[in-house]
Write a protein that binds this DNA or RNA. Sequence first.
DNA 1: ATACTTGCAAAACATTTGCAGTGAG
DNA 2: CTCACTGCAAATGTTTTGCAAGTAT
Lengths: 135, 135
Amino acid sequence: MLRRTRQREAVLSALLQSGRSLTPVEICELAQGDVPRLNLSTVYRQIKLLLEGDEVLRVDLPGQATRYEAAVCDADVGDGTHHHHHFHCEACDRVFPIHACPGAMDRLAPPGFRVAGHELTLHGQCADCVGAKNG
Amino acid sequence: MLRRTRQREAVLSALLQSGRSLTPVEICELAQGDVPRLNLSTVYRQIKLLLEGDEVLRVDLPGQATRYEAAVCDADVGDGTHHHHHFHCEACDRVFPIHACPGAMDRLAPPGFRVAGHELTLHGQCADCVGAKNG
DNA sequence: ATACTTGCAAAACATTTGCAGTGAG
DNA sequence: CTCACTGCAAATGTTTTGCAAGTAT
């Protein structure tokens, strides 16, 4: 059975409040705002529990450290689709959710292939980093 | 410039002969059949070079160690664009190149974001596996 | 001969685990 | 009171790097 602990709340809260995907280290640093002595091990243990409970999603971008995000992101569309994509900022290395989708990808696959789903990752610079560079 | 070395051959050869995705450790063990003193560091260095030359594909399955496979793209288009995407077959676990691209992704990013590029991964079942299942 | 490559060891980074102490139920 | 959870340190696993020696061109 699962206990309700401050650490658990802090981890989930960090994920929810950030509104984006976080690495375990980022989660730990954020959550330490609530629980200063929070340990990375505990973050990993909570992530594992939260994954099993489908409260967080694993975000695995090729070549990047594994990140996690709250399963119930902002305003959840009621249409049943959690579908979204990611933007990876090459400057600050943060990952943002993108609630848009070009759709109709199925045509791209070779004939005979059955497309079950897709992942799209944009990369470049986020608004913050574009701003920092130009101004 | 790139030199043609026994280690480079051995790494590529291991990938080609196995016919599947391998972890760096697996590659190293296999390639040591050709070059006994082959080192893991060298495998990683060769992988990096081979990735840049599009001779090898990275296969990143969530929760598993990163694997690599030979990018034996038959008929390679000579139109100057190396841009392509990937299809991951959930049945046979192979990765295929897709020489098509929906394009115009830049609109999907939030305002202020600068999009430098994108990666698209389709997943489902390849023609072989669809055929094997139905017939 | 030149300088890209290699092998080895050690560093850097990511994730897990043992264990004694803490705290939720 | 119990037992799951926590913090810390140390183990494990993955990938990168410094450097002297090796080798393709």
